[in-house]
Design a protein around this nucleic acid. Structure first.
Length: 468
RNA sequence: GGUCCCAUCGUCUAGUGGCCUAGGACGUGGCCCUCUCAAGGCUAAAACACGGGUUCGACUCCCGUUGGGACCGCCA
């Protein structure tokens, strides 16, 4: 039996959970679930100036909404500073790191100078040979990076990549204020948490050789790496706010289903033959890095919208009624605490299920079901509510008032009798009826609509059109 | 600028040397269905970046060019 798979998602809480982060989390989660392994959530908050508790909450909220459950954590790196410190001490004792007394200002100045001269900025190692601590002078700790040979990364997604060690600089692993830096803590934590596979965005590829050297300095075997290609905006630049909504929770507010977003995100870079729509079970069953591509993908909101409509279409009406309720409240069609009969709401949702692409749209389209009165669109009125049509509606109103069993089949019979008697086409009656009851020219089948609106309100709305 | 990555329809992708007259999906156009709008069905237009090799044979392998992207912090 092979070793237990352990993966992690390690966001830094400097913003909400965004699309790119969610995809990284998803691939980790999928890999863990596929292999029966563990998925760990770790908060990388060593940058105390930019990390906030609110963002930690927001990330957790996003993960929960997407139903990406984790088995361990969330661990916070700020709670582990003692651990990092002890590892730094170990390297210090072994002479694998050294104190650097250069100030941030000096370093910044040298970097700018190098850039201006067209050289690649790289720390020159001038503090490498200072022996013994200089009392009273703040020092950062730098890692002695090997300067010869190459480092090989065997990436699960990108294959073999070689890096020239001479290009790597002695990076800072402990700031002069005593806080550890990313490239160091990430290695310590991944070892400490027994991570077997590091799955992250390919913006980390160039960090990997540096991290591999830290593993080696400790005598540890590096885990497997898999670097996921980036998600791009429509202009092929890295996805960001200016491409529209990037926060996962924004999609919740826009009426997307978490499964739809997950389905969309997984297909960005991963494929399984020609299949487009997957259940979670299928995803965890089929997922493999063999089918993960290595090129960046453009985020396409249109396709996400289509997938969402597929999910809405396939959501059981009872469930859909529950899901749409908060959106009805937000739209003002339902008052909080005064909820409609859920059985009835389910029937209403069923008629609209394949007409709405989002829950927001669905809620919006339920207006004429929920409100007492309906406002008739002026264009619809001009086009459809002409004298002939209104005359037919009068007949319809008359016939309908005698219908005791106000159900779609009975309503249909009533329509049929009038169409028959007057020798008109169904459309001649259905369209005016639709405008009178829904206020517009587009709706589900008119008989179902009548049934759901109910006899009282139907007659009332017809009267209003006939009378006015 | 240096390092690294990437390159099939507008977009997501299938394709692992002959199954390719390059398949599917979104989007777009047309037709059908039809009480409207959807959904659904059918259908059309739409791609192997370019140039060299390797090979009997390249979308597939190699090299180069071009084009995109990422990273080069006492950020993560």
């Amino acid at each position: 039996m092979s070793d237990q798979v352990r993966v992690r998602f390690a966001p830094s809480p400097t913003g909400h959970l965004h699309i790119g982060g969610a995809r990284t989390a998803l691939f980790n989660w999928l890999f863990a679930r596929h292999n029966g392994g563990s998925f760990i959530l770790r908060i990388e908050d060593t940058d105390t100036t930019r990390s906030t508790d609110e963002y930690i909450e927001a990330i957790i909220e996003g993960m929960q909404w997407l139903e990406l459950d984790w088995d361990e954590g969330p661990f916070r790196q700020t709670a582990r500073f003692d651990i990092y410190r002890s590892y730094v001490d170990r390297l210090l004792a072994e002479g694998k790191v050294y104190r650097c007394y250069c100030t941030p200002e000096e370093l910044e100045h040298r970097r700018e100078k190098a850039l201006a001269e067209g050289r690649t900025p790289k720390y020159d190692g001038r503090c490498r040979n200072i022996t013994g601590p200089i009392p009273g002078k703040p020092a950062a700790i730098r890692f002695k990076m090997p300067q010869e040979g190459v480092t090989v990364l065997d990436d699960m997604i990108k294959g073999r990549i070689e890096f020239e060690n001479s290009l790597l600089e002695d990076m800072i692993i402990l700031r002069s204020d005593g806080s550890p830096t990313y490239n160091f803590v990430v290695v310590v934590d991944d070892i400490d948490m027994k991570i077997t596979h590091i799955i992250r965005g390919d913006d980390h590829v160039n960090n990997t050789p540096k991290q591999i050297h830290i593993y080696k300095a400790f005598g540890w075997e590096p885990p497997q790496f898999g670097h996921l290609p980036m998600i791009l905006g429509s202009d092929k630049s890295r996805l960001s706010k200016r491409h529209g909504a990037t926060s996962v929770m924004a999609y919740k507010d826009m009426g997307y289903q978490p499964d739809a977003l997950v389905n969309y995100l997984v297909r960005l870079g991963w494929s399984y033959g020609d299949q487009e729509v997957f259940t979670r079970d299928e995803l965890t069953k089929y997922f493999s890095f063999d089918n993960v591509g290595s090129s960046a993908a453009v985020f396409n909101p249109e396709k996400l919208l289509w997938l969402n409509s597929q999910y809405i279409m396939n959501t059981p009406p009872e469930r859909l009624a529950e899901l749409v309720l908060p959106f009805l409240v937000k739209a003002g069609f339902v008052i909080e605490g005064h909820y409609p009969d859920m059985q009835w709401l389910s029937k209403a949702a069923l008629t609209l299920r394949e007409r709405a692409k989002t829950l927001v749209e669905l809620a919006q389209s339920m207006k004429y079901y929920l409100l007492e009165e309906v406002e008739i669109d002026q264009k619809a009125r001009d086009k459809v509510l002409k004298p002939d049509g209104i005359a037919l509606l009068a007949d319809l109103r008359e016939a309908l008032s005698g219908v005791a069993d106000f159900t779609a089949p009975e309503i249909e019979k009533t329509f049929a009798s009038i169409v028959d008697k007057k020798g008109v086409k169904l459309g001649n009656l259905a369209q005016p009826a639709r405008v009178a009851i829904t206020g517009g020219t587009a709706s589900p089948g008119i008989f179902e609509v009548f049934e759901i609106v109910g006899k009282d309100r139907v007659l009332k709305r017809l009267d209003k059109v006939i009378g006015g």
